[in-house]
Design a protein around this nucleic acid. Structure first.
Length: 581
DNA sequence: GCCGTTTTCGGCCCGACTGTTTTCAGTCG
């Protein structure tokens, strides 16, 4: 699929046009087109072939024509023209906090600054001071922005941001006991990475709360401190914004700062059509506030039920809400098992007993023991002989207690030929077989995963994209082919709940579900505390609009066991033939 | 450049904060 490629070009065109000083509305139109393409479920080439490009909201005649141009020639003439006028290095200047398109254009025009390096030199040589509107503090801010950019390149993974926000909220509550606090922004929407952290406080004494906030020991630097808002940088370089609002505006503010921006733009538009105005202080009819204290009443004022934060991405949730068809999204409390767990037998920390205890603490009724296989030598993968012993130990454990059911399993490497790591008769003796790629990512991952899914012993595909957020990109996978193969074979695919993986991601999890694939949310835990990553996986599932019924390990043991037995018994010959793609 | 309960032209979300300004531009979310 070339959706992402075209989206990237449109996004870049928007930035280039912004530097050129083109109409903000046109710039926004390109941004919107880029987002539309990026979150499109269908292949842009198919849409184009069928003449349906302009059916996509945000794609009009002009952008559709440019999509076609890219698909035919691999480039977009207008994009090339823009690149000729604006050096590409200016685009990275926009990544420097505090530096926007106007300043980038000014720096280029007046000082011939074409890159981040040029900017650094210009600052050091004191050349910025000659520019209009460039005072001492602005220059100092740019210097700090450059430093930050070097230290923290980009966004923070959800799991790290979550830990920071939990600590900050606890500290602020100790300092100001009565304050009501909530995370907002992309963290509350459970996006896989977070740019800045947004915190919201409901209080009748905003000045006190903001003062206490900027004085927290975790704060490394205060970036801004006003009457209603303060921004700080904490140790790890992460920026945290705190907004303080009156209790009667708390719901409106929570809604407003949770976003997403696109969701809010749409709500605002809706409010306007209803003769209302919505901002961070409430929903207004004329001067009169008609809602604001809770999110529920704000949505209700707009004729909508409350929409879960994870759905607020302008992917059709408002229409769904209006029609009264919002799904009841899966919740952490619905999860009854973890189907991907490591023990001390390979590279985990826990014994079987400890694993069972930790699972019970989280309310689980069953769990799969899936230690690494032979090929994973680096992770203490089990030989066939050791696996047999391990299998006996799990069965023995089940015999002696009845509080939780452990499934004897493995996480088998998918070898380069698509084969699994143990003899078939041993694999078939296991209750639960997870298959995953751990090496040779470049060697036909799709073909290998499809073949592994078709193995009669296989139950679930683990971390199917192989990405490590912020560290390693996903391997090249033909997702449609993979999902269709999994659906045809009746096998499950994992949403790996570790915050470094979160893989399947939200859009792919939704697509998998739509194609009839069983989806399971598993932590791949190696230590006791990693069980708690489950909430991040549930966040992805909620972003994918999954209900409890869509999640394999949200089923009670009996229902799960029924599914598992049927799946294992399904003879290869009676499976639906896989469509060639 | 897109789009339509404002419908083929004329809007397009809106407020806070900072810094360099004396009334506002730029940036951010």
């Amino acid at each position: 699929m070339k959706n992402r490629l075209v989206a990237d070009i449109f996004e870049q065109m928007a930035e280039l046009m912004e530097i050129q000083g083109e109409s903000g509305f046109r710039v926004n139109a390109y941004r919107r087109a880029a987002r539309a393409l990026d979150s499109l479920q269908e292949d842009v080439e198919v849409l184009r072939r069928e003449g349906r490009l302009t059916d996509v909201p945000g794609i009009g005649e002009s952008t559709a024509q440019k999509v076609g141009e890219f698909l035919d020639t691999g480039r977009v003439a207008r994009h090339q023209e823009l690149l000729k006028k604006v050096p590409a290095g200016l685009l990275e200047l926009l990544q420097v906090p505090g530096l926007g398109p106007k300043s980038a254009a000014l720096l280029y025009r007046e000082l011939k600054v074409r890159s981040v390096d040029d900017l650094r030199q210009a600052i050091e040589a004191g050349r910025l001071a000659d520019l209009p509107g460039m005072g001492e503090k602005k220059i100092e801010n740019l210097r700090k922005g450059l430093e930050f950019r070097e230290r923290a390149a980009g966004r923070t993974p959800l799991g790290l941001a979550d830990a920071v926000v939990t600590e900050l909220m606890a500290a602020l509550r100790r300092a100001v006991p009565k304050v009501i606090l909530s995370p907002a922004g992309s963290l509350r929407r459970m996006r896989e990475t977070v740019g800045d952290l947004d915190l919201l406080a409901a209080t009748t004494r905003p000045a006190d709360v903001l003062q206490a906030f900027v004085e927290l020991p975790q704060v490394a630097e205060v970036l801004a401190h006003g009457d209603t808002k303060a921004s700080v940088r904490v140790e790890h370089g992460l920026q945290v914004d705190l907004r303080a609002v009156a209790p009667e505006s708390y719901g409106a503010a929570l809604q407003y700062f949770t976003g997403s921006k696109d969701h809010n733009v749409r709500l605002r538009d809706r409010a306007k059509r209803m003769g209302l105005k919505i901002n961070e202080y409430g929903v207004y009819r004329g001067e009169k506030r008609v809602a604001g204290a809770t999110e529920e009443e704000c949505y209700r004022a707009l004729g909508l039920p409350w929409i879960p934060p994870e759905m607020r991405e302008d992917r059709g949730e408002i229409d769904l809400a209006e029609a009264g068809k919002l799904p009841r999204l899966v919740e952490l409390g619905d999860i009854r098992a973890d189907l991907h767990c490591h023990t001390r037998a390979s590279d985990g920390d826990l014994t079987l007993e400890q694993l069972a205890d930790e699972a019970l603490k989280r309310g689980y009724r069953y769990a799969a023991v899936t230690d690494h296989s032979v090929s994973a030598g680096y992770a203490g993968g089990l030989s066939a002989e050791r696996l047999k012993v391990h299998l006996q130990a799990v069965h023995a454990f089940n015999q002696k207690q009845s509080k939780i059911r452990l499934l004897a399993g493995t996480e088998s490497d998918i070898r380069t030929d698509g084969g699994l790591d143990y003899p078939d008769e041993l694999l078939l003796q296991l209750d639960w077989v997870v298959v995953s790629i751990h090496s040779a990512f470049g060697r036909d991952p799709t073909g290998r995963m499809v073949k592994a899914l078709q193995h009669p012993a296989t139950c679930m595909l683990g971390h199917p994209s192989g990405r490590l957020i912020g560290q390693r990109d996903a391997y090249e996978v033909d997702w449609e082919a993979l999902f269709k193969a999994a659906a045809a074979a009746g096998k499950a695919i994992e949403i790996n709940a570790h915050w470094r993986r979160l893989d399947l991601d939200d859009l792919r999890a939704r697509r998998a579900r739509d194609l009839g694939v069983e989806v399971a949310i598993c932590t791949d835990m190696h230590r006791a505390d990693e069980f708690d990553n489950m909430r991040f996986g549930v966040g992805v599932a909620r972003r994918a609009w999954l209900t409890a019924a869509d999640v394999l390990n949200a089923r009670p043991w009996e229902a799960f066991e029924k599914w598992r037995t049927a799946m294992r018994a399904k003879p290869a010959a009676r499976r639906k033939p896989r469509r060639k793609t």
